[in-house]
Deep mutational scan, measured.
Amino acid sequence: MATGGRRGAAAAPLLVAVAALLLGAAGHLYPGEVCPGMDIRNNLTRLHELENCSVIEGHLQILLMFKTRPEDFRDLSFPKLIMITDYLLLFRVYGLESLKDLFPNLTVIRGSRLFFNYALVIFEMVHLKELGLYNLMNITRGSVRIEKNNELCYLATIDWSRILDSVEDNYIVLNKDDNEECGDICPGTAKGKTNCPATVINGQFVERCWTHSHCQKVCPTICKSHGCTAEGLCCHSECLGNCSQPDDPTKCVACRNFYLDGRCVETCPPPYYHFQDWRCVNFSFCQDLHHKCKNSRRQGCHQYVIHNNKCIPECPSGYTMNSSNLLCTPCLGPCPKVCHLLEGEKTIDSVTSAQELRGCTVINGSLIINIRGGNNLAAELEANLGLIEEISGYLKIRRSYALVSLSFFRKLRLIRGETLEIGNYSFYALDNQNLRQLWDWSKHNLTITQGKLFFHYNPKLCLSEIHKMEEVSGTKGRQERNDIALKTNGDQASCENELLKFSYIRTSFDKI
């Protein structure tokens, strides 16, 4: 039985969820670079991206490699990797027998973001014989899940209580170790020597080791999670996991709180800001991140802002960003909400898709409305799209047979046209069989910064309504002859009103 693990408890099935942008060198404390989270699957090609990484700022997932063999891993080693800020997950990587050479110096898994409450997941690794993470000293947050690894031993010899604050939620089941077939031998045991430290858990006094050649490092209890030197002297209180010299914040392997210019500090002093819960960055760093993602459509890219001495992905609820200094300031009234469309555009074809934009005031991208039916549609669209004030790209209304009016965009005031449909149009209306009105132009103002209007096959939309939009939106004169079809717009509506004058002759039985 794995020490510190839980057996036999019912657990939810383990679901495996399925960018080499360097964020800056980590400095003297770390020998390499800070790398983003990685999802490495199918083959070993991307694994080489770990070569210079000291910190993975995010998670590391290595999974679904069915053609790899043990010899493929023999020359692979990433000794610079010290810390993973989120979680480490391995799933069905064939041929991998140990992690001792792959990650010989991995010391800390912070667990800032977890995989279903777990910071370390080893699942269905069919050839893994031992973990071998002999320098792993601290899992700051989260638990361990090690399950269905039929060859995995050296679990009962690990004292997880020396690595985690609590072992109650560890789930370590259905491994070879369960069948008591392992016969784990710690260093020196074969020669009758006791080389590794022994600890007591559940009444068992057991030597602690990761492999037959690597003991588990056990520091004096007084050192807590700070770690200790090879001689057993406690590291500085700002260290986490390990250090090369005692009581020196510049000799830590990793930091308990924050890293700044080669030393570990309790908090980031001005003019620095907390970033990702582990390091200090200056304003320029946060500003660069903001600008890199301002026009990016890459998933996970955030326009970072500053709030409460932190550089964070977005302002919290009730705050909006001051564009001059990136500071989050309290909103006066309802907060603006910028919604970034991942692929640059979004099609609204149902109430469900409209709900995804609920509360958005600025759309960074283009909207395509293609709704053919739905219950209580006008009210639903207004509830979900009615706060949109600005669209950076274009607005396209296409084959939306259920629409009679666009009044559900009740606050839309600006279409920038930074991206144009077919390279020309910022407003595009095609084949809307029941569209009769755009907006009530006596109450609604709309500016279209650039781009043209396109109207074709809107049989109940009168040309007068379209011409009014040209005047109000500032697009009059931009359109070419064929942009607004004269014969297919309003051709099934009563669009022309003329005053009919009647004269009559009164007659009676005795007068003409």
Rank of each mutant, 00 (worst) to 15 (best):
N257K: 12
C311I: 03
P269V: 08
G300H: 06
K176D: 03
C239K: 01
N52I: 04
F123T: 00
S225R: 05
L63A: 10
T199Y: 07
N257E: 06
A119M: 01
G183K: 12
N282S: 14
G37C: 06
M137R: 08
S244Y: 04
D86C: 15
S77A: 03
Y273M: 13
P270S: 10
S296F: 08
N150I: 15
H290E: 07
L96C: 04
G227A: 07
Q276G: 11
C53Y: 02
I84S: 00
F285L: 08
H214K: 02
R41A: 02
G37K: 03
T140P: 06
G333Q: 15
I82S: 11
E147D: 03
N175V: 01
K193V: 09
C328A: 00
K193S: 04
V173Y: 11
L29N: 13
C311R: 01
G203Y: 12
E51C: 13
F205S: 02
Y118H: 07
F285P: 00
P79E: 12
R256Y: 12
L240Y: 10
V55L: 06
C293V: 08
G203M: 13
M83Y: 10
R92H: 04
C252L: 00
S143R: 10
Q276Y: 10
G183R: 08
G241A: 09
C239L: 00
G32W: 15
G111S: 02
Q204L: 10
H290D: 03
K100E: 10
V218T: 11
P246V: 07
V144L: 09
N175S: 03
S284L: 10
H212V: 06
G111N: 01
D177Y: 04
E124A: 03
H59Q: 14
N202K: 04
K310V: 04
G111F: 03
K129C: 15
T157G: 06
F66W: 05
G37N: 06
I56C: 05
F283D: 05
L164N: 07
C264H: 00
R263A: 12
D178F: 12
A190R: 06
S54G: 01
G333W: 13
S317N: 09
H290F: 10
T194D: 07
L152I: 08
P330N: 07
I158T: 05
A156D: 04
N309E: 05
N195L: 13
V265C: 06
